[in-house]
Every structure is written in structure tokens, then in C-alpha cells.
Design a protein around this nucleic acid. Structure first.
Lengths: 154, 154
DNA sequence: TACTGATAGTCAGCATACTGATCAATAAGA
DNA sequence: TCTTATTGATCAGTATGCTGACTATCAGTA
């Protein structure tokens, strides 16, 4: 009988479960209310001002139908803006607000602390190796999910 | 600027995303309709007949509020049964049905195939190392999520 | 230019996950 | 034994994620 602990899928789920819990706890301790998904979206909007939702989805490997709700909540919190694109009337251009910029800046230490805590059982070398192996497995499986990672077309 | 690819949390999410997609695709190809979560729950019920929902949750590290819905769906599909415990009138005892047993048996090749596909970018040695590091990181962070892994109290 | 196919965004519906609350029942203590 | 704390299960509410469908728009082509 194969144990759960021999199933990469089970280990993936568990590691992700812990990493989300750690992220939320650190961010809340810092006095903010932002999910990992919202953080990644906001940071990516800041790094790519004016990008549309499909491009954003590709850059962080979210499904496009998930993005809609995430942006809704960022807009509702006053951290991002969504406005119609002038070049393509189907598309919406995304911008970070000053409030969003402030939040990102203040929240960064908590986010970095969370990344350390997730790996606290591993040595520095092991942590690097884990990330390398995850990147490699992810690269090989990129096209297998509905929401693969995509470079921006600029 | 720290890249997403340097964030273990982001890599965890992405690996989990791919592993769920692979699992569902393999299982559907085999002609079944069972999620990773439902599979883990069903296999654990089979291995521990008559266990209650809290024990099940602990064995696979699910939140107890999530288990309710998962069992609902297993029962609705005729794969498991939920009946009041004779020893503790608060608790429900879980049993796998014959249909559930049959499903588990027939679905196993697809599940194992899925585990291989998730790691297809890695050598056998790298796959082992990835699982070892995940297990180690998970063990250190076990208590950090609301749904830690727990041994059965038997 | 009219048609066809592809694309951006949204929506309904379903399945995890979590927070925090509630209810019933049990266990532990004074 | 009476009281109190704890526990098993569920529920309401919220946030990912996905499938599949739909509208509006755009792009390529006959």
C-alpha cells in the first residue's frame, strides 16, 4: 500500500496548505489583510503598469476566470484600478494605486518572513535545492494545467 | 525585486495546481470522476474502517469543516457510508462501500500514473529528493496550518 | 466589405479550504 | 453529582480554482 507520504501530489497539497497559512499569519501580524493570490497580482500589476487581465493571468499562472474576482477585491480595497483599454475595447488596463504601492512597500518584510518560515525545517542549501527541483518539475508540467505561465507579449 | 520564481510559496501553489490538473486528467481518462481530495479520503476510510470524521481529517491533514462536504459527495456517489457511532453519539462512523472498493481498485493505475507525470521533468533521484525535502519542510511546518497531520488514536 | 475564427472578460456552477459560530454530547473537575 | 470545558459535526460566509458557456470585440481572409 502506497503511503500518502510517497505521493508527490499529496505532499504538494500539504506544502501549499502550510505556505498559505504562514503567509496569511505573517501578513495579518503586520496589520494587513491580503491573500497570497492578491499579493502576487498586485506586485505584478506594479511591475507591469497598464497590463490587461489575460496578460496578468499568464504572468502568474492564474486562470483567467479567477483573475476577475481577485481584481474585484483589489479594486474594492482601493489597491488597484481597472479601466477600459483605449487600444482594445474588450480589454481592461490595470493600474496600482498610491494606496496599493504603500501597502506593497509596508507588507514586503512580512512576505519575505513568510518565505523563510515555510522553509524553516531545511538548511539554506536544502531550501535552494527544493526550489530548484520545484522549478524544474513545474517547467516540465507547465502546459498541463489550464492556467500555464506565459511571458508578457510586449 | 524578488521574482516569483524565488518564492517557495509561489512554487508550492504552482506545483499543486499542476498536480491537481494531472490527477484529474488521468482519472477522467480512466473513466472516473473523483478529485484528489475525495480519493485520499476514500483510501483512508478503506484503510481505517469505522473511523470518525475528525480522525480522518487528521490522517490526511484536512480541515474538519472541509471533510463534511467531501464525505457528502462520497456518500452521494455511493462510495462511502456515514452512520452514527454507537460509542459516541456526536460522532459518525465512516465505511467504504463495495462500490467504493471497486472504484479504488480500478482507479489505482491512473493515480500512480498521475504521480509519475507530475515528476516527469525530474530524474528518479531528483524525484526522490524533491519528496524528501517536501516531507522535511512539511514536518517542520505541520502545526502552522489549521489542519495539521495527526496520528490516529487507536 | 462580409464572414470566420480567435480573443478579453464575465458568469453560473461546482469543489476545495479557511474563519468563526453553533449545537449536542462527552469528559473532567470540584 | 453538578458545573465547566472540550469535542464531533455542521453551517454561514469568504476566497481561490476550475469547466463550460456567453457577449463583445478584434483580426485575418475571401
Amino acid at each position: 500500500m502506497k503511503d500518502n507520504n510517497d505521493m508527490p501530489g499529496h505532499l504538494a497539497r500539504r506544502f501549499q496548505q502550510i505556505s498559505v497559512a504562514v503567509f496569511l499569519a505573517e501578513v495579518e501580524d503586520a496589520g494587513f489583510d491580503l491573500t497570497p493570490v492578491q499579493y502576487a497580482a498586485l506586485a505584478t500589476i506594479k511591475a507591469n503598469p497598464g497590463l490587461d487581465q489575460v496578460t496578468l493571468a499568464g504572468l502568474i499562472a492564474y486562470d483567467r476566470t479567477t483573475i476577475t474576482g481577485v481584481i474585484d477585491r483589489l479594486v474594492q480595497k482601493g489597491l488597484a484600478e481597472r479601466r477600459p483599454s483605449s487600444r482594445d475595447r474588450r480589454a481592461r488596463e490595470l493600474e496600482i494605486t498610491d494606496e496599493g504601492r504603500r501597502t506593497l512597500r509596508k507588507i514586503t518584510p512580512a512576505v519575505e518572513s513568510a518565505q523563510r518560515i515555510m522553509l524553516r525545517g531545511l538548511s539554506a542549501k536544502e531550501g535552494e535545492e527544493l526550489m530548484r527541483l520545484l522549478r524544474k518539475a513545474i517547467a516540465a508540467g507547465n502546459e498541463l494545467s489550464r492556467a500555464p505561465l506565459r511571458d508578457a507579449q510586449l
